[in-house]
Amino acid sequence: MAVLPIRIMGDPVLHAPASPVEEITDEIRQLIADMFETMDAAPGVGLAAPQVGVGLRIYTYAYQDDEGNPWRGAILNPELWMRPLEPGEPDPDDESEGCLSFPGERFPLRRSESVLVTGIDLDGEPLRIEVDGWRARIMQHEFDHLDGILYIDRLGDTDWKTTQKIARKRGWGRPGQSWTPGVDDIDA
């Protein structure tokens, strides 16, 4: 296994729809193992294949609830259904999120409270995941990556403008930029 470089906003693979996984090969299994190692090293609660430069519809996720129960897995070719968003502004204390492809920042974003995700696992078996709360937020965030959407693309005007200033200041927004967990000094 290896810790892979994580692409930073502006890299074309992050802004284009990912392709379906046609066949589960040893290379796909290795990619997912590397994605778990990268996600854990970052540390993050989710990682989509485009974030490591691979334009395939795969993401990993990991979360530990308040009782210490682990929730961890990988999903290939996911489909996402969600409840309509509750109207109103997001609560900055409870609805802020960050992204390993826009490291070191967090912004409030309203997400659906519950989702259903279907897809397949590494054995090609069907998966059905119904979750709410932070787990639903993780699923929506990672699914967005597979459609070429970063969470900053969903922010309101003021926060979006702030992200653009941050990106300019840090020299982001161009192809080929990345950081490697455990190597580069970025506070994700």
Rank of each mutant, 00 (worst) to 15 (best):
A2Q: 07
V3K: 09
R7K: 13
I8V: 14
P12K: 01
P12L: 14
V13P: 13
L14R: 00
H15P: 07
A18Q: 04
S19G: 02
S19Y: 00
P20G: 00
V21Y: 04
E22D: 10
I24T: 05
T25A: 10
T25Q: 15
R29D: 08
I32W: 14
A33I: 11
D34C: 11
T38G: 06
T38E: 09
D40V: 07
G44N: 12
L47I: 00
A49V: 10
A49F: 14
Q51E: 05
Q51Y: 15
V52P: 06
G53R: 08
V54W: 04
G55P: 00
R57F: 13
T60A: 11
Y61P: 04
Y61Q: 02
E67L: 03
E67S: 10
E67T: 13
N69Y: 05
N69P: 03
P70L: 00
W71R: 04
A74I: 01
A74F: 03
L76R: 08
E79Y: 13
R83M: 12
R83S: 14
L85Q: 08
E86L: 08
P87N: 04
G88S: 11
E89F: 01
E89K: 11
D91G: 09
D91P: 00
D93I: 12
C99W: 10
L100N: 01
L100M: 14
F102K: 01
P103A: 09
P103W: 03
G104E: 08
E105S: 04
R106W: 06
F107I: 01
R111N: 12
E113S: 15
I120H: 01
G124E: 11
P126E: 04
R128F: 02
R128L: 03
I129Y: 03
V131Y: 00
D132P: 03
A136P: 02
R137H: 10
M139N: 03
Q140S: 14
Q140H: 10
Q140V: 14
H145Q: 09
L146R: 05
D147V: 01
D147I: 02
L150S: 07
Y151H: 10
I152Q: 15
D153N: 15
D157N: 09
T158C: 02
K161D: 12
K161R: 11
T162M: 07
Q164I: 09
K165W: 06
I166S: 08
A167S: 15
K169F: 14
K169G: 01
K169N: 02
R170H: 14
R170I: 02
G171Q: 08
W172T: 12
G173S: 03
R174C: 12
Q177G: 03
S178E: 13
T180C: 11
P181M: 04
G182Y: 04
V183S: 05
D184K: 02
D185Q: 14
I186S: 03
D187W: 11
